[in-house]
């Protein structure tokens, strides 16, 4: 089963992830601008982009456990998934800063005064060096070991992203907790492996 999937995936290129990702960002924006997202399109866009970014980050985190535990190899898609997560996150941050808050002063005040914004922004900033180094040249220049260590920043970043979501809702809502739980499981799946490596 896993082998058949790997066999089939071998012929699938990674570039459609970018194509679909950007098309989705654009289509959603168009729908917002033309009233198809309801009477409050700014909030709708903010939430949709933020949620997709989190979903893509989760997809990126799932690559290694899938290979380890299910034998399904999605490694060749991981860079595209991770970069697309970052691009969608840029769209999320831009909608928040430009269309929602509309002023540098308000953006800064929110980052400084609102903990859920502070941690969201921290998560975003942690991903910047990862996005900048998601290319073959950087891997060569940094060396595999350093590059891998640097890219462990995705763990704190995605935890901050999940907290950001849990923290912003009113009342007891299931969805942000499901995201946080999924991320928790995907991170826990890594623990025994790193322990094994540490004792090797």
């Amino acid at each position: 089963m896993a082998q058949a999937i790997n066999q089939a995936l071998r012929r699938v290129p990674a570039w459609p992830i970018y194509l679909l990702g950007f098309a989705w960002i654009g289509a959603l924006f168009y729908r917002g601008a033309t009233g198809a997202l309801g009477p409050e399109p700014v909030e709708a866009l903010e939430h949709a982009y933020g949620e997709l970014a989190l979903q893509l980050l989760i997809a990126g985190l799932a690559v290694t456990p899938l290979r380890k535990h299910a034998g399904i190899n999605l490694l060749k898609f991981r860079r595209a998934i991770g970069l697309m997560a970052f691009y969608v996150l840029i769209a999320h941050v831009l909608v928040w800063a430009v269309l929602d808050l509309q002023s540098v002063a308000r953006v800064w005040a929110d980052i400084v005064k609102r903990p859920y914004i502070t941690i969201g922004m921290a998560g975003f900033l942690l991903l910047v060096p990862l996005a900048l180094s998601s290319n073959n040249l950087s891997i060569r220049k940094l060396g595999g070991a350093t590059w891998r260590r640097l890219h462990r920043l995705v763990y704190p970043a995605v935890i901050l992203g999940a907290l950001h979501y849990v923290w912003l809702v009113k009342g007891f809502e299931l969805e942000p907790l499901l995201y946080a739980g999924t991320i928790g499981v995907l991170l826990l799946l890594r623990v025994p492996r790193s322990r094994r490596l540490a004792t090797a």
């Binding site: 601008a33 409050e40 808050l101 929110d110 005064k113 912003l168």
Partner: peptide, 22 residues
């Protein structure tokens, strides 16, 4: 008096579309 998690100084008017000023 701000909400602890967001400012109450300004508001978004529903129905103004994507580019409505606060």
């Amino acid at each position: 008096v701000d909400h602890p998690r967001w400012s109450q100084a300004t508001e978004r008017e529903i129905g103004g579309g994507l580019f409505a000023p606060r």
